[in-house]
Design a protein around this nucleic acid. Structure first.
Lengths: 187, 187
DNA sequence: TGGGGTCGGTGATATATGTCACTAAAATCA
DNA sequence: TGATTTTAGTGACATATATCACCGACCCCA
C-alpha cells in the first residue's frame, strides 16, 4: 500500500507510526470489471480511494439514459457523496470499468479518523476544496463550451481516457449523444 | 453581527470568547449595487461571507457572453476559489446585484484562523463538502434536464430568485439564451 | 471457434435552442 | 419628471444536437 502513503504525503507528512494507524481505518478491496460496487437505491456506506483500475459513477434518468458524473482512477476518491454524508439512498451507481483495487472507508470510521488525526481532517479539507474547484470548472465548461470544445478540453486534460473508456461513456460524461460525439471527432 | 455567530453555530458551537476571537479575523465591508468587488484578472485575495444583499460570480467568454457560476445571498460564501487557493489571477468577476454587506477573509488570515481554531477547520470542511455536493447536483441537472426542467427546478428551490434577479441573469445561470428562457416561461 | 453482445460510424430527419431584429414596458437616475 | 437604460417578449430564421435506423467491426467467453 505504498502508493496510499504517497498519496497522503502529497498533502500532509506522516511518521511511520501515524501512517500505520491511519491505514488501519481503511479496508482493502478488489473488484472485477463490470462489478457494481454501489447500486442506485442502496445506502452509500463507504467512500473509496482508487488504488488501481477505473470506475465510473453515473445517474440513470427516467428515460433510461445514463449520465456520468465522474470517472475515477488511481488516487481519486469516489462515492455518492450526497448519500454518503446524509446517510440517504444513493441515486448514483458506481461500476468498475476495469479490475479495481480500492481502500474503503465507512462514514463511522471516517468520523473516528478525523477525531484522532487532525492531519486527516486537513487532508480531506484540501481534497474537498480541490474537488469543489474542479466541479466549478466543469459547470463553467458546460455553460460556456460547445460539445466539441468540451470534448477537446477533456481529452487534452486526460489523454489516457480515450484509451481506457468507450466513447459512448465519454459522451455520457460530456452530456452529448454518442452519435454527436462520433461526428465531432471526424471534423 | 449576530447572524454571523448563528451561521457558525449551525455547524459548530462556540463560547462567547471564542466567537469574539474568531470574529476578529474577519473584516466587515459594505458595497453598493453594481459595484464590482472582484475584477477578472485581479488576485482573489479574499473570500466573502454574505451578511445581506445579493451578489453574482460570473465568467465572460471570448464572445463577450456572460455565464453565471453562482448567486450568493445571506450566509453564502463567495470568491473565485480557484484563484483564491492558488493565488492566481481571477477568471471570474463578482458583482453586487443589490447593496451588500459582507465579512471578508484573506487567505493569510484564513490560514491563521484554521491553525488557531480547529473548529473553524471543521466548519469549513463541512461547508466545502456541502458545496461539492451542490455542484454535483448542478452538473447532473445540466447533463440530464432540458432548459425548461432546469428552470423549474431552480425556481422551485429558490423561489425568491425570480423577484430578486432579472431573468436574463437566470438564463445566464441556467446556460440558455434569454430569448429561450422567455419562451419557456410562457409554456 | 463461432455467435451474441458491444462499440462506433453514418444517413435522414426531428427538435431544442441560439441568433438577430424589433418593439414596448419598466426601472433608473440626473 | 423626463430621458435613458435595462429588461422582457416575440417573429423569422439558423444551427447544434438528438433521435432513429442501419451496418460493419471487433470483442468476448461458453
Amino acid at each position: 500500500m505504498h502508493r496510499f502513503r504517497q498519496h497522503l504525503e502529497e498533502i500532509i507528512s506522516l511518521t511511520d507510526e501515524e501512517f500505520e494507524q491511519i491505514q488501519s481505518f481503511f479496508v482493502y478491496k478488489k473488484y472485477k470489471k463490470h462489478q457494481v460496487i454501489l447500486e442506485e437505491g442502496d445506502l452509500a456506506k463507504n467512500e473509496y480511494l482508487v488504488l488501481s483500475g477505473l470506475l465510473k459513477s453515473s445517474f440513470t434518468d427516467a428515460d433510461g439514459k445514463e449520465h456520468i458524473l465522474q470517472f475515477a482512477w488511481e488516487n481519486w476518491w469516489i462515492t455518492d457523496y450526497n448519500a454518503f454524508w446524509k446517510r440517504e439512498n444513493s441515486i448514483l451507481s458506481i461500476e468498475c470499468l476495469e479490475d479495481v483495487e480500492v481502500l474503503s472507508l465507512s462514514l463511522e470510521d471516517k468520523t473516528r479518523l478525523h477525531a484522532e488525526f487532525r492531519k486527516m481532517e486537513q487532508f480531506f479539507l484540501k481534497k474537498s476544496n480541490a474537488g469543489y474547484v474542479g466541479l466549478q470548472k466543469r459547470v463553467l465548461s458546460l455553460l460556456t463550451n460547445s460539445a466539441e470544445k468540451r470534448f477537446e478540453q477533456l481529452i487534452a486534460t486526460y489523454p489516457q481516457l480515450l484509451q481506457r473508456v468507450p466513447k459512448k461513456l465519454i459522451a455520457a460524461y460530456l452530456g452529448v449523444s454518442r452519435e454527436t460525439l462520433s461526428r465531432l471527432s471526424g471534423k
